[in-house]
């Protein structure tokens, strides 16, 4: 590459970062995975090839949710070297809810609140040592929470 061209490109990138640092950061958000409607497309976009059901993942959620706008879930992975946890809801308008990556002493355990449009399985996929493991829990939703 010619020096002149390089400088032109480099200054353009620097300018873009200067003008809009947030956009540059937001580029890391996995848009294709979050916009996928089907659970399998969301999984493919997260790079999840094949997951095996595991009893070493606890997924606590209510059997019945009065209001799908707030469904509290608790996830614990006892699988050694858990690196990441993805949360998916099969019957939501878009399946992927959230993706968590743990490092530097964070334990693979969390509590959060999610929206559910309809009665559905919640599926949790754990990445550990390059392999994928899953747990599911069905929740009966009485009132749509996705509006």
């Amino acid at each position: 590459m010619q020096r002149r061209n390089f400088l032109k490109i480099a200054s353009g990138v620097a300018l873009a970062l200067l003008v809009n640092p947030i956009r540059a950061l937001a580029a890391l958000w996995n848009q294709s995975a979050f916009e996928a409607i089907k659970i399998n497309d969301a999984k493919a976009n997260l790079g999840i090839v094949q997951e095996m059901p595991s009893n070493d993942i606890d997924l606590v959620a209510p059997d019945r949710a009065e209001n799908g706008a707030i469904v509290q879930i608790e996830i614990t992975s006892r699988i050694p070297n858990t690196e990441a946890i993805s949360v998916l809801v099969e019957n939501n308008p878009t399946a992927l809810i959230a993706h968590f990556v743990f490092s530097n002493g964070a334990l693979p355990q969390l509590v959060t609140r999610i929206k559910m449009a309809d009665t559905s399985d919640i599926k949790v996929i754990v990445k550990a040592g390059g392999a994928y493991f899953s747990a599911t829990k069905n929740v009966v939703v009485l009132e749509n929470g996705c509006g």
Binding site: L96, I97, A98, N104, G105, A106, Q109, I114, C146
Partner: peptide
């Protein structure tokens, strides 16, 4: 030091709530 990195979609409830654990 970063301990937890999260990506969220629209399926996280209004006024997001989170508990996590750290060693």
């Amino acid at each position: 030091k970063i301990v937890l990195e999260m990506q969220w979609g629209t399926g996280i409830s209004k006024n997001p709530y989170l508990t996590f654990y750290l060693k």
